[in-house]
Design a protein around this nucleic acid. Structure first.
Lengths: 344, 344
DNA sequence: ATGAAAGCGCTAACAG
DNA sequence: CTGTTAGCGCTTTCAT
């Protein structure tokens, strides 16, 4: 048998309106009455029905998050942070992973609209389709925040990947490398990584060798395999390279695997660096020099921005926040000899 | 301005009841009328309000999934499979990760109840507290399915970890190993892994050496660190061991890291095997011999069982399904010399 | 400070 | 086949 606000009212000998007041803590209620009601609530183990409440306040207290894949540690980590931050504010998260598939993306956004989510976080961007979908959401008055500035007036929380990439490439240059290969793939934020890479080379007067830039403009799902295969091509090309900068850690791990299979040692013969600092970066052999994303800060800022937007959806300007990246030096670049797990 | 069933009714010149009939497709409606209404729905871009519907039919078409952590690839993978299977049936998933924290677990289940989920999948088990929580759910009439048989009449979808562990330990024994260390931690399914380990040794007439069994009865969050530290202890203990069986792949990776730091090569000096077959198992150097869980089948079976339970919640008996595990031989056990990524 | 009453948008009898 | 009507459980005026 279901416990409703009526049962609580009867138990506490008050009207349902007063119970409602106690639940929401908005209106003032005499302390005595409140205690009485709180006791009744506890006794009956009453939980307000969200659906009924939603009907009136027109808020579902639900947020939709769309990402490419959940099995990617970066996205899983970010999702978890967002989930927690949202939970603290009384919101529930629905996660949808589209596997970079346009139809799935559409289906996910559809569910978000049917469920009348209060806001959407766009973590997956597909050329052509995503922009249209986001416009749809805007038209329905659903605020959105994204991690990609694919739209002129998009609200964005981003990492400064130009800086992050510059830092790590600069580090390689300081270690003496002049022929640094690049492995990445568009779309995603790789575009900025390429910029950082080019900037760093340019600033040091190093000519960019396009032959050792492996950046397919193609949707990649299996990053490690991509890094592995791109490295094999690099080796076969007979071009000179003494270091490889990979757009993410999984690509770097694939690259290292390929190098070792070709009898090339890392970092002795070739240095490899990654990006993201997933947990495996500190665990791999050799451990990965990489760029750490402040996932917690990014996740929290995203939630803050979205909730702000939900409260004042009349903001004319789009919001943008950018976070700095942090270089993490480990073994794979050759800068240090050895690090134990304790320093990960 | 919001479009409701009333607007559609007015537009189509019928009563709201008829519109409702068309939406739900249950009752028969004259074809002519239906077309008229469908046209009005499309014209006004009407989407029925889930909250209002939920209030009456007492179904939210929402399922709750509680797991320990999202950043663990095993759980992320399982969550994704469950998400997809549920989506196909018109259900939405809410994921909650409790980080093995009793308070968080309680908060998650609380949200599930407030949101009136139609069913709950229990992927996180904490001694003492979880049993009580599940009983609560049962009392509220919310069906549950778990991956752990922690309750006599619990509906379960499980992997046959006794078999899986026996297989991999048996494999080590066939390779000539007699001193096989064990690294695991209770709670979780480790209990069954220990059983499989003991069975395999026993069947081969090998005495169990308790000194090389590292199975803390303690909640572990950082598995790789645990594997790393347990292995360091193992090395310091001066006990003999030529192989290590780890309760999951992350522990195995931590173990390998510790062995290498101590100058012990894998698999040349010591063989290491893991469990789960996460993607990193095929990517690590050396690649991991491990036991593969049929995640897709487990996820689908879980969804099937839960939806079945939602339809016929009057079932007296608890349901149980068990899936066989599959041994995956790679480099870390020393059975083969080398495998390229293509054979992962 | 509290209660009575009017809905929120929809479904499900019950009539016709 | 279709319309009328009574709620679902809650929040929110409007009285008192």
């Amino acid at each position: 048998m279901k416990v409703t606000i009526k049962d609580v009212a009867r138990e506490a000998n008050v009207s349902i309106a007063t119970v409602s007041r106690v639940i929401n803590g908005k209106d003032r209620v005499k302390k005595e009455t409140r205690l009485k009601i709180e006791k009744a609530i506890k006794k009956l183990n009453f939980r307000p029905d969200q659906a009924a409440r939603t009907m009136i306040i027109k808020e579902t207290k639900t947020i939709g998050l769309m990402i490419p894949v959940l099995t990617n540690e970066y996205w899983a980590g970010l999702s978890e942070v967002i989930q927690d931050a949202l939970g603290e504010k009384g919101y529930t998260l629905i996660i949808g992973s589209d596997n970079m598939n346009p139809d799935k993306q559409k289906a996910i956004l559809n569910v978000f609209q049917e469920r009348k989510v209060d806001g959407v976080i766009v973590g997956s961007f597909l050329p052509d389709v995503t922009v249209k979908h986001v416009d749809d959401l805007k038209q329905e008055g659903i605020p959105t925040v994204s991690f990609f500035p694919f739209h002129p007036n998009m609200n964005c929380v981003m990492g400064d990947h130009v800086q992050g990439s510059m830092d790590v490439v600069q580090h390689l240059i300081q270690l003496g490398h002049r022929s640094i290969a690049y492995i990445g793939s568009l779309p995603t934020t790789s575009y900025e990584r390429v910029m950082g890479y080019r900037n760093a080379l340019m600033m040091n007067g190093i000519q960019v060798n396009e032959a050792i830039m492996m950046d397919k403009n193609e949707i990649i799902l299996d990053f490690s395999r991509y890094g592995y295969e791109a490295t094999q091509q690099l080796i076969q090309s007979k071009e000179t390279f003494t270091a490889v900068f990979c757009a993410n850690d999984l690509m770097a791990i694939g690259a290292i695997k390929a190098l070792y299979e070709a009898g090339i040692k890392v970092p002795e013969n070739v240095a490899v660096v990654g990006y993201d600092d997933i947990s495996m970066a500190g665990l791999y052999r050799p451990s990965l020099t990489t760029v750490q994303q402040p996932i917690k800060e990014i996740g929290k800022a995203t939630v803050d921005m979205l909730l702000e937007l939900i409260l004042h959806n009349d903001e004319p300007m789009s919001k943008k926040v950018t976070f700095p990246m942090k270089l993490i030096v480990r073994e794979s670049c050759g800068a240090r000899q050895f690090m134990s797990l304790d320093n990960k």
